[in-house]
């Protein structure tokens, strides 16, 4: 059976992350781990392709045992099966080791025709893992896809966003796609699929099962290191402009001119 693979990630809900102004540390109390908000678009698109072409939608994630929650979420959103790539050997992975791990899992699962990723994960915001997987598998990459125009057994035609518009690209299959949220509106889980998700127990794969080179996994396989972490200075001192609209206009534009960002007469 042909596989439509979706790579997903469990991330801390960054909208909940706050800095404690007194201690300058990250307040993580009550910060929940969630499915990366850009991933449901990838899952939905895979499900839509399946509805047109057949196949199995396989969600995969690398993470700790708790990451099975996002696979259950993926099942609720329409994925058919989920694989959790989990084990101590994967800890400390940067984008190079992560993309190697996912690529290796995809290789082992076999029969992939399309590999979907969200545009990026909101904790790291790197957008590097999608192209990385494509490079490891030596497959074409279609990045920032906003529409699948056409797909058949041999090729796919997509609209891919650029800084000033989009390109229409045709690619052979298999291929790696990263999708932007414009591509679709993910359906809400039905009662039945939500229930199916809650009960789902994903398959677990370790480094042995994906036949990985252990030197390329986790911290060992990661060339980058975080050497320092600090809280950015909150440099802005807000000046509230008051008065009637006319006074505000005069005041604002003279301030902007003083800041050197605008030229007035």
């Amino acid at each position: 059976m042909k596989r439509l693979i979706v790579c997903i990630k469990q991330v801390p809900d960054t909208s909940d992350v706050r800095i404690d102004p007194e201690t300058n540390t990250l307040v993580r109390e009550g910060v929940e781990s969630i499915l990366n908000p850009l991933d449901p678009f990838a899952i939905e698109e895979a499900v839509r392709v399946k509805e047109r072409m057949g196949g199995v939608v396989t969600a995969i994630t690398m993470g700790p045992p708790q990451a099975k929650k996002v696979l259950q979420h993926a099942i609720a959103l329409g994925a058919d099966e989920g694989y959790l790539i989990c084990g101590p050997e994967f800890a400390g992975a940067d984008t190079l080791a992560t993309s190697y791990t996912l690529a290796q899992a995809i290789r082992r699962l076999g029969n992939a025709v399309l590999i979907f990723c969200g545009k990026q994960a909101i904790d790291g915001d790197t957008a590097q893992v999608g192209p990385g997987i494509a490079a490891h598998l030596d497959l074409p990459q279609l990045i920032y896809v906003r529409k699948i125009r056409k797909i058949n057994k041999r090729y796919i035609v997509v609209e891919s966003m650029t800084d000033t518009g989009y390109e229409i690209i045709r690619s052979t299959l298999p291929a790696v796609l990263t999708v932007v949220k414009e591509i679709n509106e993910p359906r809400l889980p039905s009662l039945k699929s939500a229930m199916k998700g809650r009960r789902y127990e994903p398959n677990v794969l370790g480094g042995e099962e994906i036949k990985a080179d252990f030197n390329r996994l986790g911290l060992k396989g990661s060339p980058t290191r975080v050497v320092r972490i600090f809280v950015p200075e909150q440099a802005r001192k807000t000046k509230i402009l008051t008065g009637n609209p006319e006074e505000i206009a005069v005041n604002l534009f003279s301030s902007l001119q003083k800041e050197g960002v605008l030229r007035c007469q």
């Binding site: 980058t224 972490i229 600090f230």
Partner: peptide, 16 residues
């Protein structure tokens, strides 16, 4: 920036 810009991280690539 990391974690949605809440913190800054300095990263090195020492052995590659």
């Amino acid at each position: 920036p990391a974690f949605g810009g809440n913190i800054m991280a300095t990263i090195e690539c020492p052995n590659r």
